[in-house]
Design a binder for these strands. Structure first.
Lengths: 214, 214
DNA sequence: ACACTTCTTGAGCGATCACTCAAAAAAGAA
DNA sequence: TTCTTTTTTGAGTGATCGCTCAAGAAGTGT
C-alpha cells in the first residue's frame, strides 16, 4: 500500500565508486536508514525521537544532521525508500504484473494478508500508520502520507475504470466506489495486523472482501 | 466502533444535588471533557499537550490535575465518555436494537458511513485513531484502545456465532472470519474518513462491503 | 465573625524535545 | 610533511514536555 509506480527505472548503481576526499563516513547509510525505518514504522513520526534514532542508527546527532538534513528530511527519505522496498511496493508490482484487474486486486489483498503481519518487520504499513497522531506543527508530515494514500486510491480507480472499458467489469460497476472499498479494506487490514491479527486471519478477511467483486 | 454494551443502565443522575462545601468549581466539567475529547480525537493522545488541553478547557494546570488526576486519567475518562456518546455507542445500540444479525451489521456499516465524516466532530473514531503513534512509555494507552477494538471484534464474533446457530447464517459460514472482516471494514472506513472521504463515498463502500455477506 | 473546605492561580520543577557547533580525527592532494 | 576536505564527537542551545505547589480566593458550617 504505497507507490503504485514501476519498480525501478533509475540508472541503478552510480557509474563508478569514485573515491571521495575527506574523512569517510563511519556508518553504512543503508543500514542506518533501515534502522530508522524500523523505528518510524513501529512508533510513528513524532513518537520517534532523534535520541531514539541516533541510538538505533549507531551515530551521534551531528552525523545524523550532516547526512540526512533534519528529522523531517530523514523521514521523507525513509518513506521514499520504503516505497521502493518489497513490502512497500507490492501493490504497484501486482498492478504492473497482473493482466486482469480482478487478478491484480486479489493478489494485492492476499499479499497484504501475508506481508502486514510478517514478524520480520513492524506490523502493518508505514504509509498508513506512521503519521496518524501529530501536532499541528507536523501537519505536513501527516499530509505527505495522506496524499500518498489518496494517490494510491486514484491508481486503483484508474485501473478499475480501464477494466470496465475492457469489459472485465460490468457497465454498471462503479470504479470510484470499488477503489474506495479496496483502499478501505487494505487500510483496515494494516490496522488489524497492528492489533495482532495473523496472516491466516487476514487471509480469510481478504477472501471475504473479494466476494464483493462485481 | 466502541463499547458494544447496553446504552445505559446506571441510576442516571444522582439522588440529589447535595450542596458541597468549599469553593465551587469555576468550570463546567462536561464542557471541559467535551473540549478535551475533541482535541484527543483530532490529534491523538501524545500529540495533545497539557497546554493544549488547559487552553481548550479554559482552565489552569492545577485545576486540571485536581479535577482529573493526570493526563492519562483524563484520557481514560474521555474514552469512557466517548463510549457512552451517540457517536461512540452506535455499534452497541445497533446490535441491541436489531433482531437480525445481517440487519444489525448493515446498520452498523451504514451508520459508520454517516457518522465518521460528520463535520460536527473530528473525523473517524477516537478509539481507532487516537493512540496509533505512541512512545514506549505510553504503551499502556495504546493497549487500552487496542483491547477495546479487539473486544468489539469478539462481540461481533459472538453475535455471528449466535446467528449461525439460529440458522440466519449458513452452517458453513465462519463467524470469526466474518467478524474480522467487518472490523477491518469499519477501521478502514474510519481511516478513509480522516483522509477526507465523504458520507456518500463511505456509503457506497458500506454497500459494497455488505455484498460479501454469506 | 471565624474556621473549615475546596478550588484557582501563577510561578516554576526536572526531563526531554529537535537541533547546533567548535574542535578533533581521518582521509586524499600537494 | 603540510594543506584541504569531510566526518565524528560531546557539550550544550532554547523550547516544550507533564506536572507540582504555596498562596489566595470563594464558598459552607457554626
Amino acid at each position: 500500500m504505497t507507490e503504485a509506480a514501476t519498480p525501478d527505472s533509475a540508472p541503478a548503481a552510480g557509474p563508478a565508486p569514485r573515491p571521495r576526499r575527506g574523512r569517510p563516513p563511519a556508518f553504512d547509510r543503508e543500514e542506518a536508514l533501515s534502522a530508522a525505518t524500523r523505528l518510524f514504522w513501529e512508533r510513528g513520526y513524532e513518537a520517534t525521537s532523534v535520541t531514539d534514532l541516533t541510538a538505533a542508527m549507531g551515530i551521534r546527532p551531528g552525523s545524523l544532521y550532516a547526512a540526512f538534513g533534519d528529522k523531517r528530511s530523514l523521514f521523507e527519505e525513509v518513506v521514499r525508500r520504503y516505497g521502493r522496498s518489497p513490502v512497500g511496493a507490492f501493490v504497484g508490482v501486482a498492478l504492473a504484473e497482473e493482466t486482469g484487474a480482478r487478478a491484480a486486486f486479489a493478489r494485492i489483498l492476499r499479499e497484504a494478508a501475508a506481508i502486514y503481519p510478517d514478524p520480520t518487520h513492524p506490523a502493518g504499513c508505514l504509509v498508513i500508520s506512521a503519521a496518524t497522531n501529530v501536532t499541528p506543527q507536523d501537519a505536513g508530515v501527516q499530509a505527505l502520507l495522506r496524499d500518498l494514500r489518496n494517490r494510491n486510491r486514484q491508481v486503483f480507480e484508474d485501473r478499475l475504470l480501464a477494466a470496465r472499458q475492457d469489459g472485465e467489469l460490468p457497465p454498471g460497476a462503479d470504479p470510484k466506489a470499488l477503489a474506495g472499498y479496496i483502499a478501505t479494506v487494505i487500510q483496515g487490514m494494516s490496522q488489524q495486523a497492528r492489533d495482532g491479527a495473523t496472516t491466516e486471519e487476514l487471509g480469510r478477511v481478504a477472501e471475504l472482501a473479494l466476494r464483493a467483486w462485481p
